[in-house]
Write a protein that binds this DNA or RNA. Sequence first.
DNA 1: AGACTGCTGTTACCGCAAGTAACATGCACG
DNA 2: CGTGCATGTTACTTGCGGTAACAGCAGTCT
Lengths: 214, 214
Amino acid sequence: MDTTQRTDQQRSADRRRRELLEAADRVVLRDGPQASMNAIAAEAGITKPILYRHFGDKGGLYAALATRHTDALLDSLRAALDAPADRRERVEATLDTYLAAIEARPQVYRFLMHPAEGGGPGDQGFDVGKHSAPLLRRMGEELAQVIEERLDLGPGGQQLARVWGHGIVGMMHAAGDWWLGERPCSRAELVRSLADLLWGRLAAVADRVGGPGF
Amino acid sequence: MDTTQRTDQQRSADRRRRELLEAADRVVLRDGPQASMNAIAAEAGITKPILYRHFGDKGGLYAALATRHTDALLDSLRAALDAPADRRERVEATLDTYLAAIEARPQVYRFLMHPAEGGGPGDQGFDVGKHSAPLLRRMGEELAQVIEERLDLGPGGQQLARVWGHGIVGMMHAAGDWWLGERPCSRAELVRSLADLLWGRLAAVADRVGGPGF
DNA sequence: AGACTGCTGTTACCGCAAGTAACATGCACG
DNA sequence: CGTGCATGTTACTTGCGGTAACAGCAGTCT
């Protein structure tokens, strides 16, 4: 019943957990989201039941993994978003940070966005009921908070900020996803185009003159 | 080797295929994306191998299902987008059409956005290599085409239109997904907020005066 | 010392779903 | 009548998520 012993055990367990997470990370990075528990256990040099003792089920492991990466990415984004600079510059820096991240490690990105629900009995994947990846939701909420904190939106501003937060994050995500697959232009061009969109250029440009239809 | 006979068989096969698709639809609507092939076969009153003869694998069936729904949704969206009205009105109508669709049939929406890659051997799901759901890509491309057709974007306009197409669709999707889960406001309010965002209000609003930080 | 606790680790198993092989049946054509 | 050919079946394999049940190895209490 000694307290120090308990702490020792806890520390050992935590270290082990971190090792397991890193092994899982390597496998997911290699095999994508459909990495099997067996493969992860093998990579960690152990067998399945240990993984289950540590993380409960596949959803737990994936959630732990996702939380790690999500936290890291969110830290970078916060840094870009909080920089002491012009609003447009901050927006562009944030977009660029996100795009650089998904460009650098597309496998991680793929995993975070597509959690690959399990096929087993009972378990329906770890995001039952929710549709999008947790990363998107968290980014949306964070951005909403920053918007509401920084901008004077008047009455109903909090709700507006949340809509915008999720909307902007979704814009970034979808454009980034498409860009990552087709690479139609440089990252800088993409950032500029998206910022232009957010800056109202869609409403500002003129109709085509000899356009089809009417 | 008669041609008419071949046509008869083809027609019969097509009808059968449609019946199977409708049965699959019912099951997916009921059980979500993790509907099993067995369940679908049972609903159709037959057994698994027939499904496999018609659709190849689970990915094929899901792709066929998704194509049907995607086509239907895209038709509605095109109608809203092509209406003879003010640009802002058209944008709002399109947003509203999309949101109404996902509100009316969230199960279908969930299925389309979250294709649930298979866990079997060999097969990696039907969207190997691509990340997002096909629906998002298709909507993005369609919107890009309309934008490029209607708006005078100057040099590099085609690429800009594609970025905007995918970006706007992503915005719509993420905001809609979040809204569907939390229902923080009415559909009309959401539409208005998103249109405001696209109309550059983000750039136009003032900084908060007594804001935290600096 | 010796029984007890609690952790780590194993092998061997269950249940389930995807996908396939092999066999049975109805039907038009020569 | 036999020959194609599509339709349908049962019964199987493979692979994965998840779970007993058991084995070793600390340190602890009496």
